[in-house]
Amino acid sequence: MRITARTVMHLASLLGSREVELELPAGSRVLDVLVRMADLMGDQAVPALLRPEDRRPQGHLRIMLNGRDIGVLEGVETVVQDGDEVLVVPPAGGG
């Protein structure tokens, strides 16, 4: 299935784009999407997304699935569906 993975600011620079299309097996979770994004970023950049010790998402990142914060869903264990969109936003403020 196809998932759109998106991010912004310095994470987009590391990813090389603000948006990538990913092919993932059925039953994949938000965590799997992040791991794939980290793979695309290369070893140096992985810590921007995942904690080196357990390859779980860095706690300060905001992760949304189809616009909703995953905290109100099942967290990184939330299963994604074909056509879903995952957005990762670094800490931000102001405005």
Partner: peptide
Amino acid sequence: AFAKIGTPMVVDVLGA
């Protein structure tokens, strides 16, 4: 980040 970029970072966030 904010000290270097300031409020314009919200363009990226809201855009996404």
